[in-house]
């Protein structure tokens, strides 16, 4: 009886210690990435290449999803607002929900599954094929050469992707609301402009997307660097990247929303 209890407690204890230990390693890795960022800024070509692979290549999925999310918002919003006879508020509904929440959050979720998983798989495979060990042999710091450019490339791409998602979504809402259904165009835009504040809404959305970009990239890089150098290890690490960063995005979004929009 006592022994069974002790086993259970030991099991819990081991998990907690492992978790804290992993957090510590991840934090040290993150700090190391920031520390060696200076070196990669001296070679901006590396960062540009990473903006291409995580930003430009994510464009299609971001733009198409943004358009469809906006169109669905337009349709559903119209259905509900119509019952209150205030279809003109459709612009406010589409713009505020995209700029404040859906833009940064959905773009970050797509970014995590499109670019985050690619980063993890790439670094995991580099480790499995001992490319990283080879760099160390040649006295090239792998954190400065491989990790830091990927971090900055993704962090720079993320706010642009979120802004394009929001802009595309508002265009989609306009397409459905004004062009298809026939909401008055003037009031659609003017009510939107009256309700959306640059600092309160647009800028806070940008801040959110930057925070999500940092979180997703840091998780993806650490999971890749930490992956066991086997095929199974890399595949597990990729899955973990998507799951952990999606949860991190949603959790951080709640915290940021609670801080930013307290309904003053």
């Amino acid at each position: 009886m006592m022994q069974a209890l002790a086993m259970v407690l030991r099991g819990i204890g081991r998990r907690v210690v492992d978790g804290v230990w992993r957090m510590g390693v991840a934090t040290r890795f993150f700090a190391l990435t920031l520390l060696y960022s200076g070196q990669c800024f001296r070679r901006p070509g590396l960062i540009v290449r990473e903006i291409f692979s995580s930003g430009v290549l994510s464009l299609i999925i971001i733009l198409v999803s943004g358009l469809f999310v906006g169109m669905v918002l337009g349709l559903q919003g119209y259905e509900t607002l119509q019952t209150y006879g205030s279809e003109e508020a459709l612009g406010i509904l589409v713009a505020l929900s995209l700029v404040r929440e859906l833009g940064p959050v959905v773009a970050a979720l797509l970014f995590a599954s499109r670019a985050g998983s690619a980063i993890t798989a790439e670094i995991g495979l580099m480790k499995a094929t001992e490319q990283i060990a080879a760099m160390e042999m040649m006295a090239v710091n792998p954190v400065a050469r491989v990790v830091a450019p990927r971090f900055w490339g993704a962090v720079i791409s993320m706010p642009f992707l979120a802004a394009m998602f929001s802009a595309m979504g508002i265009f989609g809402g306009y397409l459905v609301g004004v062009v298809l259904i026939g909401v008055d165009e003037g009031s659609f835009w003017s009510q939107m402009q009256a309700a959306v504040d640059f600092r309160e809404d647009v800028l806070n959305g940008v801040i959110k997307s930057v925070v999500f970009g940092i979180a997703v990239t840091a998780i993806a890089l650490f999971e890749g660097y930490d992956a066991p150098p086997t095929a199974e290890g890399v595949s597990r690490a990729t899955t973990r990247t998507v799951v952990t960063s999606s949860l991190a995005i949603l959790g951080l979004d709640f915290i940021l929303t609670a801080i930013m929009f307290r309904g003053v």
Partner: peptide
Amino acid sequence: LALRVGNM
């Protein structure tokens, strides 16, 4: 977002 959607 800043000029057309927002009221900057």
